[in-house]
Design a protein around this nucleic acid. Structure first.
Lengths: 253, 253
DNA sequence: TAGTGGTCTAGACCACGAA
DNA sequence: TCGTGGTCTAGACCACTAG
């Protein structure tokens, strides 16, 4: 990374800076390597720290950098592919399911979820908290809403620890047949609780996957899963595997 | 929206500000309504404009606000559901396909695409530019890569306008049977050309959907589609329709 | 031309992690 | 304790839109 001067340009400085840094990352840095700190980088490029940060923020959004307070800025590995839906049934808790039950309560769901579940607005449902780990690091936090109606009464194990109870609910759920599922993906920002689970700061960009599971003509469960947008590439369909390399979206115009 | 003072809090001001604004949007503003300008808002909340902007940026990221330079900040409508994959075959150009061919060239694809297409790194392929419009506004810009090999030779219409040629390529593609498809979704930022097509500034957050179309055992086409992350909720699966209301991800902890 | 959001600056202090 | 990224300020000017 040279000590290149930023000459006058019609495009914003931070944008130009971003492309310069992108090229540098491609050619001169290895994954995991630590970049100079923000004050030094800003000085080196002759811009204010805020401007430099604007460029770094975008690069982090694109999954090229990872920044940690108190530590520094490092070059991020390519995003990992995370299978969200495959051809085989993935009723919650199925086979190679990487989800880990964390906790369980009974509560009134958000109105949006209640609508999807087709329950009355103030009906209580099972609320399971689960975490997904991939390649050794947390990639997603989920809230799974399961109506108490169709499932057998679970009050017997109400006293059990949240996690054990969560697993029990999932087991019951698996007894039902799965007719189909329905997914939506949108951009969001991590709530404080999700952020903690994902080892990020609140407000970090996440991909919110809302899934409705259908069984016997009704909605048997609704899952709201938030995936780390910086480290994850969500995969759908047949061959979830093959690696698409870095940065499909990083070239300048 | 009151003239509430921001009292001392352990959480960042912009975060608190965001929740205050979110509540105000829910209770006191109608879709399309214009907010006071940033300088007034900042003064009203007793913060610097940069801090106010940090809150507005997050709200825009979450699809709650829409900001346009020279115009103002307005309350955004709920995100629209955009069907990305349904049960029926959606070979490019099929039935209710909302894609509009814009242009067509022959060029060497990015190495990542070449790898997915299983072509040699420097092989030229058809590159189609398409746009997707939903509810009257542009929601996605796509680059469709189609190897020249399997399709009939199209040099005959090379002279035709780009758009006409693009449609011809799609027609040829439809003749092949579709064995399956493979999708990945990740967060990106809009390149300058895509941004223009999407009526956004460069760097705007987008959901990048990479699709591989399989036919006769090989990859017949690769599509890289960038959807506006602020206005779109990507839907997959059976019932693409049903509306999940606003803000699955906006409550404070 | 007036008003809006977008960019940029040069500081300051804070919260966190590691030594 | 020190160095890092995270937050915040109070300005300035620019680019764009609309009247």
């Amino acid at each position: 990374m040279g000590t290149t001067q930023l000459e006058a340009a019609p495009e914003p400085k931070y944008w130009h800076l971003k492309t310069v840094l992108t090229d540098a990352l491609d050619s001169e840095f290895a994954v995991g390597e630590i970049l100079p700190n923000e004050r030094d980088l800003a000085a080196r490029f002759g811009v204010a720290r805020a401007t430099l940060r604007q460029a770094l923020e975008q690069l982090e959004l694109e999954g090229r950098l990872q920044r940690r307070r108190g530590v520094g800025t490092t070059v991020a590995p390519p995003r990992m592919g995370v299978a969200v839906a495959s051809n085989d049934r993935d009723w919650p808790g199925g086979s190679a399911d990487a989800w880990q039950a964390v906790d369980s309560t009974v509560d009134v769901p958000p109105s949006a979820v209640a609508a999807a579940l087709e329950t009355a607005p103030d009906t209580e449902v099972n609320v399971l908290r689960r975490t997904r780990v991939s390649h050794g690091q947390p990639v997603a936090a989920e809230l799974l809403y399961v109506p108490v109606g169709p499932a057998p009464d679970l009050t017997a194990i109400d006293a059990a620890s949240g996690a054990a109870r969560a697993r029990a609910v999932v087991r019951e759920l698996q007894r039902l047949g799965l007719d189909g599922e329905d997914r939506a993906v949108e951009l969001g920002s991590a709530r404080a609780d999700d952020a903690k689970e994902l080892d990020r700061l609140p407000g970090a960009p996440v991909l919110v996957v809302t899934t409705r599971y259908f069984s016997r003509g009704t909605t048997a469960a609704v899952s709201v899963a938030t995936y780390r947008a910086d480290t994850c590439r969500l995969t759908f369909g047949d061959t979830a595997g093959v690696e698409i390399h870095h940065a499909p979206q990083t070239r300048a115009s």
